[in-house]
Design a protein around this nucleic acid. Structure first.
Lengths: 234, 234
DNA sequence: CGGTGGGTGTCATGGTGCTGGCATGCGGAG
DNA sequence: CTCCGCATGCCAGCACCATGACACCCACCG
């Protein structure tokens, strides 16, 4: 939960939504599980085995359609995941895959179900979590449906800046620690297109890149581009 | 709820999920509201005023990003909608707009909240509803992210056939009653592209179109196309 | 029964972004 | 320090689909 052990994730707000009291009660039922890089915590079609909290590292949530993969979000320390199949009784509809080394806390299905049966008011928290998730999922769908790549990129970078950014002179520093390929996957674009766009922005002085760090030097320029693209589309 | 008063909707399964006992209790709290064509039941940013059930007609769920609109789903008689803002306390994140003349039953927010407070176990149903919604929303996102237009169209038509189709000789008849423009919006494509694709399929004998009715003559051909496109994409 | 307007079919054109391939660069392992 | 391998930058060619414009057709309505 401390910012320092969070390796700068992609937006995943809703996974965070978990009242402290409930988190503590769940934590008491959990055991640890270690995942090697690229190892799957669960895959599409798996039966629900538990409710998970990321302890360390990062997981990619995604799925494979035919031979093509897509990524929904990345989750990191403090994020909870895996409740959907527990709540509707269907198999998992997406994959959860460790990006690097990762550790998760596992609340076994039986124990969670027992807790819920004993105290059904806890369903209220899950309903709230899912309502937030639904809202964001629809919003991402809308972005993909209406915004061209530069606008989607600008929006994402501004979100990341708001969530994980730290002031750096006149700009905002984002510690990405993420290969361009993975960022491209999340934006539903190709690595090449992403690289090209970033370089173009760097040339204009909007951003600066070094190592794994990205600095928004002129966030206002990104906002302007976003507004303009949105208007132009009509 | 009878098939005959359902004017052939676009896929909207999850809105249906509502246990009969809960539906009856909600219905007892509801009053009716009539909507003229294109009138909004609620819009993005509106505060939550109630939980709704479609009685008659059809509503488009969508939103506007900049000057560009997108459509998430259509809902029709028997479908419930509008719970997200009630559950997370935020304003509406999408629009609900009557397509033709429509009538909805309204459960006022106060009454729903009172019912939930009195009987918190009802949250369980909402959690389940939203879990299903989440699953489908992510699946639509994946379709848009990975499938080219012909595959998305094939998938949608097969879904519609499974939901609303009736046997017709060797094929499946779908009573669309929907202008191509609205179907195109749901597929996130242009009217022209949709028309072109449908005509091409008609030429190959895969489908037949007349009036507002579409007949899948060779559903197997659509499934094959879908499989092939998915593989080709890798 | 003729008019009118929305829905549909079709086309030329252009833009966006993907594909595949290759060069370069950086950073970690030995 | 040197080497290797992943990550990045860059380019040519092309596929897909949006756009805008226009003619046609049918249903509905006066």
């Amino acid at each position: 939960m401390t910012p320092t052990d969070t390796p700068a994730l992609l937006p995943s707000y809703w996974f965070r939504d978990m009242p402290a009291d409930l988190a503590a009660r769940l934590e008491a039922l959990a055991s640890s599980r270690l995942l090697k890089p690229t190892e799957y915590l669960y895959r599409v079609g798996d039966a629900a085995e538990g409710f998970y909290r990321v302890q360390r590292g990062r997981l990619r949530l995604g799925a494979t359609l035919g031979a093509r993969e897509y990524t929904i979000a990345h989750v990191g320390p403090g994020d909870w995941l895996g409740e959907v199949p527990l709540l509707d009784g269907q198999p998992h509809g997406s994959d959860a895959q460790a990006v690097g080394e990762a550790e998760v806390r596992v609340v076994p299905r039986r124990l969670l179900e027992a807790l819920l049966e004993q105290e059904p008011t806890l369903y209220r928290h899950f309903a709230r979590r899912l309502a937030i998730a639904m809202r964001l999922s629809v919003s991402y769908y809308g972005d993909l449906a209406t915004l061209p790549l530069p606008a989607r990129l600008a929006k994402r970078l501004l979100e990341l800046a708001a969530q994980y950014g730290e002031a750096e002179g006149t700009g905002i520093r984002i510690d990405l620690r993420l290969p361009q390929q993975l960022l491209a996957d999340m934006l539903v674009t190709s690595r090449q297109s992403l690289s090209k766009e970033l370089k173009a922005w760097e040339g204009r002085g909007w951003i600066a890149m070094k190592y794994n760090t990205l600095i928004l030097r002129q966030p206002e320029a990104l906002r302007a581009l976003l507004r303009q693209q949105e208007l132009h589309a009509g």
